[in-house]
């Protein structure tokens, strides 16, 4: 077959595929207004994610379906996110509501308090995600230990003598501490702070030995840390000089971090869900959108769309299930 005709054939197939999809999506009837629930207040990292992603997503939706939709971001803070996620789970599953689910917070809070959206995995249908902010473990300059290796060894030797400060309880940082304990057999004294900022302040002032935070906590407090590693299978390109726990200690890999993805209430019709997923995939494939996200200090990774995000949700659920006894032993659970 001559080259030209091959190309034409490929182009034709590609065109018809696109056309078929467009046809499919044109038949989908989208709601006029889509509400996007964010379980945290305006100005936070989840809110920023929504405000950067949603306009691009909306444009892609219109592109795919030829229908004009409008989106409203609804901040519903409260009860550590439970109010927003409950509202998302209980919303009419007709496509008129989607939202951000934050992992591991959704399953941890859900299991800790038997939240109204439990079991969460059956309450939310995955749309997609491209934000996983890895946990970074840092050792304070003022600590009596020279390296994290040494501090962790001391916490193994004399359980509860090494202090770890972090946002908490039940935060992704707290989860990361339990993951670290489980991987190293160490036992830390957990000093929770209401927010990462006060935790990092305590870290800088020398009140705690170790702090656990995320990418930007490390970037803004690097000068106060004499040792650090990241809980990730590979180094993260935002902080390329920070070794993974595997490189630093020879244990792991421990995948830890804070994931912020989009989901719809379970039961949302499949054709609508398919459009939403494709629109998000297209938005996250747009280099300009990703550049804008990075500009806004959003820790992007390769996107996981639809069932790929579903698989990620399953694995986080598994992790939460395993760690719940540790939270219970620590006195952080009611039931």
């Amino acid at each position: 077959m001559p080259l030209k005709s091959t190309m034409t054939a490929v182009a034709t197939i590609a065109l018809s595929a696109t056309f078929a999809q467009a046809q499919d999506h044109a038949n989908v009837e989208l709601p006029g207004t889509i509400r996007v629930i964010v379980a945290y207040s305006a100005g936070g990292s989840s809110d920023t994610l929504a405000r950067v992603t949603i306009p691009a997503w909306e444009a892609e939706l219109e592109e795919l379906t030829g229908q004009s939709v409008s989106t409203v971001i609804a901040n519903m803070p409260g009860a550590g996110g439970e109010i927003g996620w409950t509202n998302l789970a209980n919303a009419e599953p007709d496509g008129s509501t989607i939202g951000i689910i934050n992992l591991p917070a959704v399953p941890i809070v859900g299991k800790a308090r038997d939240a109204a959206y439990s079991p969460w995995i059956e309450s939310f249908a995955p749309i997609g995600v491209n934000v996983i902010d890895p946990n970074v473990v840092m050792l304070a300059n003022s600590s009596e230990y020279e390296t994290l290796d040494e501090a962790i060894a001391a916490a193994k030797e004399d359980p509860g003598s090494v202090t770890v400060g972090a946002d908490g309880p039940l935060s992704d940082d707290h989860v990361a501490m339990y993951q670290l304990q489980r991987a190293t057999d160490a036992e830390f004294a957990f000093i929770p702070f209401s927010g990462t900022a006060p935790a990092m302040r305590a870290f800088l002032s020398g009140e705690v030995d170790i702090a656990i935070g995320n990418t930007f906590d490390y970037l803004t407090n690097e000068q106060g840390a004499k040792d650090a590693f990241v809980l990730r299978a590979e180094r993260y390109d935002f902080i390329p000089d920070v070794p993974t726990i595997e490189e630093a200690m020879g244990v792991g890999p421990i995948p830890g971090g804070s994931t912020r993805g989009f989901a719809a209430p379970a039961g949302t019709p499949g054709d609508i869900l398919a459009v939403y997923r494709e629109a998000l995939a297209n938005a996250y494939a747009d280099e300009e959108v990703v550049a804008e996200m990075r500009e806004a200090n959003i820790t992007t990774v390769e996107p996981l769309i639809g069932e790929e995000f579903g698989a990620e949700m399953q694995s986080v659920d598994q992790l939460a299930e395993e760690l719940i006894p540790l939270f219970r032993d620590g006195g952080y659970l009611d039931n």
Partner: peptide, 20 residues
């Protein structure tokens, strides 16, 4: 509401709006 550090929920009588 929830204890600031342990997360233990107190005196809310199950009312979600009082968790914080």
């Amino acid at each position: 509401g929830a204890h600031p550090l342990t997360g233990e929920v107190r005196y809310t009588f199950g009312e979600l709006a009082l968790y914080e």
